[in-house]
């Protein structure tokens, strides 16, 4: 595929994400998983790294993810096009519908659609979460190879995740900003060589 075609394709894919990812930043995650699997542009482990960076920097997660994926796939032009693709449908719709929505945003049918969209969006993110869990805390391929159940668990990251799960849900540590947890986890990863590198 030529570079121009790749960029065009990238823009088109993110335009679709801009239309269908309803419900805020995290909602783009399942779409990005799907896109990576479909195109082979990046791996699902890379999606996690991108998400970590997106959570630790200013700006909406949805835009940060789009920029990061765009850059990974097509350099700086890719970053610009993926970001534009993500925001363009919303920008155009706001400009066209601003007057209409001011009168009708409590519309019965819009509310009814969201009655279906919110649980669906949660389900999509949860499904992506299961995928993420499988890849970062478990080693399914090694387990299949050796048949030894102990090889399934990657203990270092599992213990870290359990500690974080507790800290992010009890007072007073639950109010600490995620960026601190991400930075702390990076330090733990380096000190205990969690990547095995």
């Amino acid at each position: 595929m030529t570079y121009a075609l790749l960029l065009l394709n990238l823009f088109w894919e993110f335009l679709k994400i801009g239309v269908f990812a309803v419900g805020g930043g995290m909602a783009t995650l399942p779409f990005l998983y799907d896109l990576g699997e479909k195109t082979g542009w990046y791996t699902s482990a890379q999606v996690l790294d991108m998400l970590a960076v997106s959570e630790s920097t200013p700006g909406p997660i949805g835009i940060n993810m789009a920029t990061y994926v765009g850059y990974t796939v097509g350099g700086f032009p890719g970053a610009v096009l993926a970001t534009l693709g993500t925001i363009l449908p919303g920008v155009i719709l706001v400009l066209i519908l601003a007057k209409f929505l001011a009168r009708h945003h409590d519309n019965r049918y819009i509310n009814a659609a969201f009655y279906g969209l919110r649980p669906a969006s949660t389900a999509l993110i949860a499904a992506a979460g299961v995928g993420v869990l499988g890849e970062s805390l478990f080693n399914v391929s090694l387990w299949r190879e050796t048949g030894n159940i102990a090889d399934l668990f990657v203990w270092g990251p599992i213990i870290l995740a359990l500690v974080l799960a507790v800290l992010t849900n009890i007072k007073p540590t639950k109010n600490i900003h995620p960026v601190i947890y991400i930075a702390g986890s990076a330090v733990v990863g380096i000190v205990f060589k969690l990547g095995g590198a």
Partner: peptide, 24 residues
């Protein structure tokens, strides 16, 4: 060093996603 850092970070991101799902 980057690979080890991201192995730790991924464990954290998993927890953040789970927390987001619970909230949603």
């Amino acid at each position: 060093i980057v690979q080890n850092a991201f192995a730790g970070i991924r464990a954290c991101v998993v927890v953040l996603i789970v927390n987001a799902v619970v909230k949603l």
